[in-house]
């Protein structure tokens, strides 16, 4: 009885494999895609995984810390990091690439944007927003006892960099930076303030569900150019760098450099993979706001957009 059963399930497994294989994969070892802890990344990971599976590859998902994953890739323990944001992990990626064991496969087409952000209701309390110059008069509005009389700007974890202290100095804003330790803390504060319609201004990034769920806008600083971060003479403040907004940055894909030889086909697919902010934002919202499962949302997208990803295979 049991043996029969085993046979059946084995056969079933073989059938499944047979049906999904389009081209013969170069290796049946599993390609390990990391799962980080934000929804967008999970969606990207599953979309990539589903496509690779359709191309006949064997996929394994490994939960991994965003920053710890780089040493995993250097060892070859992890294969693909689907989303590496220029805004948050540039240094880590560069360091990893320098070891020669991690390869940067270029932009995923999505743009990470991060900037000072405020909820809609703050426009009343600080007229002139989203223009940054309005902030000059609004220190008191955003102030808290610890920072009084200056306003409190909630920055990202100090590991994210971001040069906000310098920005405040250069643009002469009446603000003080308080760093959140993780983005969970960041959003917890936002949620709390939003519920009470309390003043808050903080670092937000997209693509993310927050700007979808909560109404608000990014502050419009003088637009970033590389010169702003390098040359004090650039911009309004002739004596200081950073007198502009934060850089926009691509979201990269990074892989273990051994992938190229072991799974050349899969390597090419990841390299060709392209997405855009708008679609991602929508998928993100389906998961975080409508409560759909990540796996289902990814599967659904893959099923409906065969034309899109087929093109990545053939190249």
């Amino acid at each position: 009885m049991i043996r029969n059963l085993l046979c059946i399930s084995l056969l079933g497994g073989l059938c499944l494999m047979g049906r999904s294989a389009i081209a013969a994969p170069e290796s049946h070892d599993p390609i390990k895609i990391t799962l980080n802890d934000w929804t967008g990344e999970l969606i990207t990971a599953h979309i990539m995984g589903d496509i690779l599976k359709k191309a006949g590859y064997n996929i394994d998902y490994v939960p991994a810390d965003y920053l710890a994953q780089f040493s995993g890739m250097e060892n070859g323990d992890l294969t693909v990091a689907p989303e590496v944001w220029a805004t948050t992990a540039q240094e880590a990626l560069q360091a990893a690439v320098k070891t020669g064991k991690v390869e940067d496969l270029g932009s995923s087409g999505m743009q990470a944007r991060e900037e000072w952000w405020f909820p809609e209701y703050m426009k009343e309390k600080c007229p002139g927003l989203p223009n940054w110059e309005a902030l000059k008069k609004c220190g008191e509005v955003f102030s808290t006892p610890e920072t009084d009389p200056k306003g409190r700007y909630l920055g990202g974890p100090s590991t994210w960099g971001g040069h906000d202290e310098e920005r405040i100095e250069a643009l002469d804003l009446p603000f003080e930076v308080v760093h959140a330790g993780t983005d969970a803390a960041l959003f917890a504060e936002l949620k709390s303030a939003y519920e009470r319609k309390a003043p808050i201004i903080l670092w937000i990034y997209t693509p993310h569900w927050v700007p979808i769920k909560y109404k608000g806008e990014f502050v419009e600083f003088p637009r970033y150019e590389p010169g702003c971060y390098e040359d004090p003479g650039w911009g309004i403040n002739k004596d200081a760098k950073y007198d502009c907004g934060k850089p926009y940055g691509p979201i990269w894909k990074a892989v273990w450099s051994g992938m190229k030889d072991k799974w050349p086909g899969a390597y090419a697919i990841i390299k060709n993979y392209k997405f855009d902010n708008k679609t991602m934002g929508e998928l993100d919202a389906r998961v975080d706001l409508n409560g759909e499962k990540v796996e289902d949302v990814a599967q659904d997208w893959v099923n409906k957009h065969e034309d899109v990803w087929k093109a990545w295979l053939s190249k």
Binding site: L67, S158, G181
Partner: peptide
């Protein structure tokens, strides 16, 4: 450190992030 202190815990965490 994950809620934004600036102590030794933060230093270790930051070191982790910079490998």
């Amino acid at each position: 450190a994950l809620v934004g202190t600036r102590d030794l815990g933060q230093v270790t965490y930051a070191a982790l992030s910079k490998a």
